[in-house]
Design a binder for these strands. Structure first.
Lengths: 154, 154
DNA sequence: TTTATTATTGAAAATGGTTTTCATTTGCAA
DNA sequence: TTGCAAATGAAAACCATTTTCAATAATAAA
């Protein structure tokens, strides 16, 4: 019966998780979201598709997905976590972040990613060897003051 | 009158902040903490030195420090933020993180930092030029499953 | 197919880190 | 020394997330 449903059905079965309407919709929302999205926005979208879905289930599903490495959780320090499907074919190109410590603005940049790949792959393989760590993703953030905020402070 | 008090007195005056006993102690705690520390632990240490200090003041001071780039705020997604003085002479050597998505264990690694410096400096100068961003610090995290958790899941 | 088991569910309550309120105190410029 | 805005602590509010609990539904077994 493989290959009949969406790609993630196999992953769910592998972990012994049941395939339920709520989970189908949450996966659908994640799959169709190009950037990192917070739990509340997932809930709003999922709830619009099926009002029976509760926020609790969103949180519970995200926790499962995160713990098995299907989803990456981001915490930029602005009070709510954001989530993104790992290896999502429809996702926005991989990017890193520039975060303003004053106004909390987050700039996603992709410009220099190519230069970074070499570095990341090297580091990743050294780390996973040394610490026996199965690395699924990474996050690179630069912190500072954005143009507006550094002007405002001058 | 420069150079009389601790190094950060100048920074405070520059921003028009008053120098108060609470702030002196909080700066002292931050200065004498080698790793990232959470607000509650800062409060415990500060409160031991002077019971008049409240948790509220700890949070307020950290917010000020973060917004002006004197402190870097870290959020590893385990429910509480951590803080570290930027350019703290007494600090632990700069390090990056390996975070287990399942058990939330955080491994600080320093092994390959030298290889990373070149990459970071290059990226940093390109980014600050392109986005007019004053970069004060960065964070590099790798996410995955630690040895114990990946064994437990097999 | 039917049934039994057990995971999953949503609503509501609880949790806990962080922020706000507010009346009081205090640093510091004049 | 004085005046006043900034800073303070305690308590309350806030709010994202987690837990509780009784009801429901997915799946394996019969």
């Amino acid at each position: 019966m493989r290959g009949r449903g969406p790609w993630w059905h196999d992953r769910f079965q592998e972990y012994g998780w049941r395939i339920t309407p709520s989970r189908e919709i949450i996966m659908d929302v994640l799959h169709n979201t190009k950037e990192h999205i917070n739990a509340s926005d997932i809930y709003i979208k999922a709830h619009a598709m099926n009002p029976a879905i509760g926020l609790t289930t969103v949180y519970r599903t995200l926790e499962m997905l995160e713990k098995t490495g299907m989803v990456q959780k981001f915490d930029f320090g602005d009070g709510m976590a954001r989530y993104e499907l790992i290896n999502n074919p429809g996702a926005k190109d991989h990017h890193h972040h520039l975060i303003c410590m004053n106004c909390k603005r987050i700039i996603d940049y992709t410009e220099f990613i190519d230069d970074e790949i070499d570095f990341i792959e090297k580091t990743q393989s050294k780390l996973s060897k040394k610490y026996n760590f199965k690395i699924a993703g990474h996050m690179i953030n630069f912190y500072g003051l954005c143009e507006q905020c550094s002007k405002a402070m001058a």
